[in-house]
């Protein structure tokens, strides 16, 4: 089937999509956007988190056909030109990236959290990121990264736009 979407603000059409495949597969294998990671394909790890019409979802659990005509933003779409988004930069600066496999999903989930709750407390962060697994960092540095991003975004609010 043919799928017509907007991905990271650009119109993208793909042909010959198999009806049973996931949005994650389509993004990675047909659209050349490997930022969203495939780790579990069952909604458990959050590495594939993307925005679908502005809502954070696991791309592995969306059928490609359900994304037809919809607006998708992936981790690649959060950068501003050549600049990393403050959330992305904070993950690097806080040492919240080890193997990096969980990072794209955590970045999108954090981006969504901060859009709703600009200054989240520890328990809000833990609650909101409960669907994102990391096997390397032990999460402490991830919490640091979220707080660093929150404070930087509060002091330069223009960067929040997205």
């Amino acid at each position: 089937m043919r799928i017509t979407t907007t991905v990271n603000s650009e119109p993208r059409d793909v042909d010959d999509v198999w009806e049973g495949e996931s949005l994650l597969y389509m993004l990675r294998e047909r659209m050349g956007l490997p930022g969203s990671k495939n780790a579990c394909e069952q909604g458990e790890c959050g590495s594939c988190t993307v925005y679908l019409d502005g809502v954070a979802v696991c791309a592995c659990l969306v059928a490609a056909g359900q994304a037809d005509g919809r607006d998708i933003v992936t981790v690649e779409g959060l950068t501003e030109g050549n600049d990393l988004h403050p959330v992305q930069q904070a993950f690097l600066d806080a040492g919240a990236v080890q193997c990096g496999f969980c990072t794209p999903g955590l970045v999108v989930a954090t981006h969504d959290l901060l859009a709703r709750t600009p200054q989240p407390g520890d328990s809000e962060i833990r609650e909101y990121l409960a669907g994102n697994l990391c096997r390397c960092t032990g999460y402490e540095k991830i919490l640091d990264a979220v707080k660093l991003a929150a404070s930087r975004m509060a002091s330069s609010p223009t960067k929040v736009a997205k």
Partner: peptide, 9 residues
Amino acid sequence: VGSPQIRNR
């Protein structure tokens, strides 16, 4: 239920 991503969907 699940996580925010699961509850969103």
